[in-house]
Nucleic acid binder design. Structure first.
Lengths: 332, 332
DNA sequence: CTGTTAGCGCCTTCAG
DNA sequence: CTGAAGGCGCTAACAG
């Protein structure tokens, strides 16, 4: 078996209590004793048994991260942001994905008990199907990009303002017939982006919304693009709720020899790496996903440090990135 | 405090031992008693405290994953493969990255003690700087893409054979002056790919190797591309040790109006998603990274299940993907 | 089949 | 400042 606190105690001629105190940096230990204990611990390559420590101290130094999935650019970036902060704070990460399955999500959440001090949770289902409804998390948590829920801190991408800004940009660059390729019906961001598009159009008094269905993946964007080309009167701009659909749409336009931006303008949302590589470069809204993860974890750690601190709901601003796919402004 | 096994025991009128047995699916429990226990546990929303369980059972149901980084396509794919198998096997994942810093790696490894049953470790440093040298992991582990070490199971991408195959392909398509953009000097894959390039050239008796430095990122590929264009006699093909560098190189060629593959052929390694989107499509070696992660975890689980099973070293085959960047074969 | 009883390794009062 | 002792919640013999 591995070496325990007892071994260190024996070797250093002190009690386990003293070893514990010395190692945990408590003040009430004589300097020379502390010195000796640290040396012995180091020599023996002692490393405290986590389960034992957390059983008695009731803290795990671990944060649970429960996500819909782990695959792809988005989650990779998110994890990077979370990881950087976790490392800085000396926290470990227990990662779990539930593959969009609410039952699995429940299981994942339950399995976190006694293993983590707090939770970072992404649950982008709209309220109707909310698997969190009434679910007692039983520990401090921050909701990631999932909309606000009563009693839980939340940090969201400001999809609504982003979509308004993009719609405004399209209007400002002289476009009037702006079609929107929507995201999945049950997704929070998709809702917000659609809402932003609608509201901005209404505010500007710029005609009726024109909405085509999509589900955030490339194929649906491609299909939507084809559909739009078949319209008697084509749109002069297309705003896709995310970049992947915008790219699919671009592909459809290319196939039909419809030029972007000459014949039709195109805009996306997310600023994925591909957006700058395609031709023409895609105008889009930049979302700093790593910052989303990092800030969420910071918020969680703040609550862990002070459970009395208020439960907050924040929104992460997004930034318009103008590339070639929308042409240049004609008028403002 | 949260509800414990004692609460369930009291409520079900049995001892804690019986509750434990019933919940863990042991056979020696009367059907009706088991039924009652399960009901009570469910009603009370009981969920075992992990730390306590693992302290007494000496098993954590958790696998430690220690990687150089979490950022980017490669690690995202790797995690996807690992996650799928972990989920299938009911294991949790404790993830840690050490940012290429050997000290942090040591710390991460040490911190895994008492928290995980086994380790998946990626340590792509060449032997000289090997932070693992003499390090007793103290538990079953599988090395990922880090080369073989005595006494530890390992699973590698077959970079060597892949590089040979690519070099062979370039020769077979009629190229003679093949330059190679190398990866970081201290990286295992980079070494293997360079070695494969050299050996194949030597075997074919096809002239001297022509090696340009790089470090796996796009910028270094771009610099290498410019350097190659300045040569008195340009190469007729460039083989980059990974796709990111190949893309950087392609960018440099585009800027200089050098056509691929008409003026110069280009090949990469990894088959990242971008490889198929650029123009011309990049000829590359496909590496199934998710499979790498999945198989590594399976190997680890096998050893966990049977510690007597032999320590193996496997190599994951890679596959040549021919796109437009190398032209078509002239002769074989 | 079921209950009793030791720990697992560590932290934390409580006395010295 | 230090040691002894009692848990933390659960599992695993060992008796019934």
């Amino acid at each position: 078996m591995s070496i325990t606190i007892k071994d260190v105690a024996r070797e250093a001629n002190v009690s386990v209590a003293t070893v514990s105190r010395a190692l945990n940096g408590h003040e009430n230990v004589a300097p020379d004793v502390r010195q000796r204990v640290l040396e012995v611990a180091d020599r023996l390559q002692y490393s405290p048994h986590h389960a034992a420590r957390s059983l008695s101290s009731r803290r795990t130094q671990t944060i649970g991260v429960v996500l819909p999935d782990l695959h792809g650019e988005f989650f990779s970036e998110l994890m990077r942001g979370i990881d950087a902060v976790a490392r800085e704070a000396g926290r470990h990460l227990l990662v779990s994905s539930y593959h969009g399955n609410p039952d699995e999500q429940g299981a994942a959440l339950r399995a976190m008990r006694g293993r983590v001090d707090g939770l970072l949770l992404m649950s982008p289902f709209v309220a109707d199907a909310d698997p969190l409804a009434g679910q007692a998390l039983g520990m401090p948590a921050v909701l990631l990009n999932s909309g606000a829920r009563a009693g839980i801190a939340a940090l969201d991408i400001d999809s609504y303002q982003g979509a308004r800004a993009m719609t405004r940009h399209l209007l400002a660059t002289g476009h009037r017939r702006i079609a929107f390729i929507a995201g999945p019906d049950d997704n929070f961001d998709a809702h917000e982006r659609l809402r932003g598009y609608r509201d901005e159009l209404a505010t500007a008094g710029a005609g009726m919304p024109w909405i085509v269905e999509g589900d955030f993946d490339e194929a649906s964007g491609h299909a939507a693009g084809r559909l739009l080309l078949e319209a008697r009167e084509r749109p002069d701009a297309v705003f896709a709720a995310n970049d992947m659909m915008a790219l699919g749409c671009l592909f459809a336009f290319n196939q039909a020899d419809v030029r972007v931006p000459a014949h039709i303008a195109l805009a996306g949302f997310d600023d994925i790496p591909l957006a700058r590589y395609v031709h023409p470069g895609l105008t889009t809204m930049r979302v700093d996903i790593a910052a989303l993860g990092g800030r969420a974890l910071r918020a969680l750690l703040a609550r862990l440090a002070d459970p009395e601190s208020p439960i907050t709901t924040e929104r992460l601003a997004v930034e318009l990135v103008v590339r070639e796919s929308c042409g240049t402004p004609r008028a403002v």
